[in-house]
């Protein structure tokens, strides 16, 4: 049984241990919209990248200081893993009936061609998983740099959560309008049952900062933006940024169960204008 072979943890290309697996789980869940994720391990932590349709990317950052043990033997360790299975494994004990009992997690990776090994222990029960890995491909580079940002809004997640959950799902796109003048911040959908707008006042209690210099209006695929719902549901704050190319960057600030402040970000390309 693999739980006895805890020999020489130093031999692994990557190994980590955390007393409460829920912290990691929470962040992985936030980007769990596709089967496969690319994991980048470096001394500062893990970055988990998930992509779709060559125009949408999500990154979850899991800092190394959240772990009790964290060791990466190379500058960067990269592999692809089945994210949905990883999430299912970490969640296997479900929600504990006694809140003080949390699952302890150990992870090992031995390099190309080896599986990601996971040991979870909760209340004396042990789960042992071996998830196959694949060689990582290149990930998308959005070149989203702070200097090119035109508009930026930071708001409480609560408000956006409500709005996002009620967007008309029959609409193909979500149009985001930002403007220094009314209606300031408008989300529009064009669905089967007509046109809907949601306007948010710039001086709303929910808006923490509103730096909008120029009126912009861009359309994004609603189906892609919906992938950020899980992150939004876990988040406390959201930052909305658009750059001069109309690219959208959504950043979610998530407080984990043990009060670590973590970030998950999403990049999305705009839809081309047909007319």
């Amino acid at each position: 049984m693999s739980l006895t072979q805890q020999d020489g943890e130093g031999d692994h290309v990557f190994h980590a241990k955390i007393d409460n697996a829920k912290n990691v789980l929470q962040l992985l869940k936030a980007v769990n919209f596709s089967d496969v994720a690319t994991v980048f391990g470096s001394p500062s932590g893990l970055k988990v990248t998930v992509e779709e349709a060559k125009c949408f990317q999500a990154n979850a950052f899991i800092q190394s200081d959240m772990f009790q043990e964290f060791d990466v033997k190379e500058d960067v360790v990269t592999f692809k893993v089945f994210l949905n299975i990883l999430v299912e494994c970490l969640n296997i004990f479900g929600v504990s009936t006694t809140p003080s009992v949390t699952p302890t997690l150990k992870m090992y990776y031995n390099g190309f061609g080896t599986p990601l090994e996971i040991l979870l222990e909760e209340g004396g029960v042990i789960t042992d998983c071996k998830i196959r890995t694949q060689e990582a491909d290149d990930t998308l580079e959005f070149n989203f740099c702070a200097t090119a940002v035109i508009n930026k809004v930071i708001m409480k997640a609560e408000c956006l959560r409500e709005i996002f959950s009620e967007l008309d799902g029959s609409s193909e796109v979500l149009e985001i309008l930002l403007s220094p003048d009314p209606p300031y911040f408008r989300l529009s959908t064009y669905g089967n049952y007509g046109t809907n707008h949601t306007d948010i006042l710039k001086d709303s209690d929910m808006v923490e900062s509103f730096n909008v210099t120029r009126k912009t209006s861009q359309r994004y695929k609603l189906s892609l933006l919906k992938h950020s719902n899980k992150a939004l549901n876990a988040a406390q704050k959201v930052s909305f940024r658009t750059d001069d190319r109309g690219f959208l960057c959504l950043q979610f600030m998530i407080k984990t169960e043990d009060s670590y402040i973590c970030f998950v970000e999403f990049f999305c390309c705009p839809e081309e204008d047909d007319d």
Binding site: G194, S204, M206
Partner: peptide, 11 residues
């Protein structure tokens, strides 16, 4: 609340 206005235009 919070200065949010939702408008639905139904034909």
């Amino acid at each position: 609340r919070y200065g949010v206005v939702k408008t639905f235009n139904l034909p």
